[in-house]
Design a protein around this nucleic acid. Sequence first.
DNA 1: CTGAAAGCGCTAACAT
DNA 2: ATGTTAGCGCTTTCAG
Lengths: 335, 335
Amino acid sequence: MSVTIKDVARQANTSIATVSKVMHGSYSISKETADRVNQVMEELGYHPNQRARNFVSKSNKTIAFVTDIDKEAGFKNPHMFEMMCGMEAMLSQKGYGFLVKGLTKSDVCDYVKNAFETKYVDGFVIHASVITPQLSDLVSSKGIPHLVIGVPSFDNNFCWIDADNKHAGQVAAKHLLTVGYRTVAFIGGTDEDKISMHRLEGVLSILNEHDVLIPSNYLQYGNSGVEDGYAMTLQILKGASRPEAIICANNYLAYGCVKALQDKKIKIPEEIGVITFDDYPFSQILNPKLTVVNIDVYDMGQEAGSMIVQKIKKPNLHIQSYITYPQVIVRESTK
Amino acid sequence: MSVTIKDVARQANTSIATVSKVMHGSYSISKETADRVNQVMEELGYHPNQRARNFVSKSNKTIAFVTDIDKEAGFKNPHMFEMMCGMEAMLSQKGYGFLVKGLTKSDVCDYVKNAFETKYVDGFVIHASVITPQLSDLVSSKGIPHLVIGVPSFDNNFCWIDADNKHAGQVAAKHLLTVGYRTVAFIGGTDEDKISMHRLEGVLSILNEHDVLIPSNYLQYGNSGVEDGYAMTLQILKGASRPEAIICANNYLAYGCVKALQDKKIKIPEEIGVITFDDYPFSQILNPKLTVVNIDVYDMGQEAGSMIVQKIKKPNLHIQSYITYPQVIVRESTK
DNA sequence: CTGAAAGCGCTAACAT
DNA sequence: ATGTTAGCGCTTTCAG
C-alpha cells in the first residue's frame, strides 16, 4: 500500500488535519510544523491519493473532449489535433486531466448524459461535428458544463466558440491592399463550405470599404481539390482584366492556383500575389513559399480549456462568440 | 445533491448493501427485492457515483497516453494522432477511458510515478520520444503497467511495440523489382534518423538478395527537407549510370526528388520510378501521385490499446516486438 | 495554531 | 437472502 496522509501525520507527529492544511497552504499553520510536515512528505515519498480527493471534493478534475474520430482523422484534420494540444496544455496547467472520447453523432447524447450523471468527468468540450438539437436540450436542461468548438448551424443553447473566419478574411484583404495590390480575386469552396464563405465575407467587407471593384469572374467557387484551384485560377485569368492578387480559401486551392499561375508563366508575387489561410507545413514547402493568414488553433484550444474550467466554476456563464488570433505570416507569394 | 445509494435503500426498504448487490448482479438476492430496487433506482433516477466507485475499487478504468506535444504537433506529426485514434477506439471498446497527457522527457518519471501511486490511472502508453533509462527502471521496479510506442534506443526493460520499418523497406524494394525496375537508388535522412535507416536496411537486404548492384552515388543521406531531396536526387543523376527507380525515405524527400526529376525533364515513372513511405494526403496531391508503402498506424494504435489492457490483467506479460501492416498503394509514380 | 471527528458514496467482509 | 459495519484517504467544520 502506498503512503497515506495518516503515515505522514504519524511520522510528523501531528494530525491528519494539519497535514491536509499544509498541503493546501493554510495560513494558520506555524512555519515550523509546515516545514516539518513538508519534510516528512518528502522523506516518505507521499503523494495524495487523487481518487480520494476526487471523491471528497466531488470533482474528477478531468474534462472530456468528445468528437468524431475515424481513421485518417490524424491526416485529414490536423487542425483539430493542434487545437487538442492547446487544450491539453491549458487543462494540465489548471490541474485538469484531458480525456478524449471518439463518438458518432448518434451516441453523444447518451454518453454525455451518463458521464455527467455518474460524475465521470467535470465537463465536456464537444466538437461541433457531433452536436445535435437534442444534445443542446440535454445540456441546457441539466446544466451540464460544456463548450462547443465550432458554430452550431441550428438554434441552440450551447456555449460555443469558433475561429473568426470572417475576421481572418478581412485581415487577408487588408494585407493585400496594404502592400499595394489594387485588385483582388477570390477562389473558394462551395456554398456548404462555411469556413470558405466566412472568409469571403470578410474579404468582401474590406474590398467594399475600400471601393475596390470586383468583376464577376474574380469570384470563383468550387470543390477544394488542387485541380479545382487550378481550374478556378484559369477561369479568372480568362477574364478581360487580371487581378493583381488572388486570395485562396485554403491550402489545396492555393496549391492549384500557384500551379496554374506558373504554367501560365505568371510571376508570383510580381505579377500576381497569392495569399491563403492556415499555416500548414505545406505552405512552407511550396515554391514560392506561401503568405498565409494563420489562425492559431493551438491558442484557441488553450482558450477552450480555460473557458471550460471557468464554466465549471461559474455555471451560469454563457459564451457564444468568435475568437481568433489571425496573424499574417508574410512569405514569398506576396510583395 | 444527487440521489445516492442510501436514498435508494431507504425508498426500497432495504439496506445499501442489498442495493449494491443488485447493482452487481449478486445471485444471493431474491428476484422480488432485486426488481423493487431496480424500479426505485429508475424512479429516483439513480446513477452510482463513479468517483466513489473509483475510490473504493482503486481503479479508474482509464489509461494515460503520455507523449510530448508542443505547438505544431498536429501538423508535424499526424502519425501520432492517427495512432491515438486507433488506440482510443480500442480502449473505448474495452471500457477504458483514454487520457492524454503532454509532458517533456524530464517530467515523465515524476508524472508516471505519481499517477501510478495515486492510482490516477490504471496503465500507461508512453511515446518513445519521452522515455529515459530512469523511466525504464521505474516501471520495471514498481511493476507499472505500460507499453511504449517506438523502439527504445538504449538497454531497457520496457514493453514496447513499433512499426517495422525494415520490413516496410523490404516491401518497397520488392515492389520495385516486381514491377520491373532493375536498379534502384535510395535517398534518406541522416544517421540519427532511425526510421530512415531501418527502411534503408530493409531495402538493402532485398537488393542484396537479388544481387542488384548499388553504385555508391545511389545512396544519399542528408536532412529531410524538400531541398535536401532535390539536391540528393541531383547527386544521383550526376553519376555515370542512372538508376531506374528511387526510394525516398519520406514524403518531403520524395517531393524534392520529384521536383528535381521534373526539372531535368526526366519522365516519371517511365524513365525513373519513385516510391516513398506513409500515405500522407501529400502523396495524393503531388503530380504524379506518389506510390507509397503505407504503414497502418491506426491499426497499430488499436493493437497498443488492446495490449495495454492485457498487460493490466497479466502484469508479467512481456512484449518487445515490431508489428506492422505495410501495404503498397500503387499510384502514378511507379510503373 | 492544532486536533478530533464527521462525513463523502460506495464496496465487501462478516453477521444474522 | 439481507443487513451491519468497517473502512477507502481525504477535506472541513468545530472545538480547544
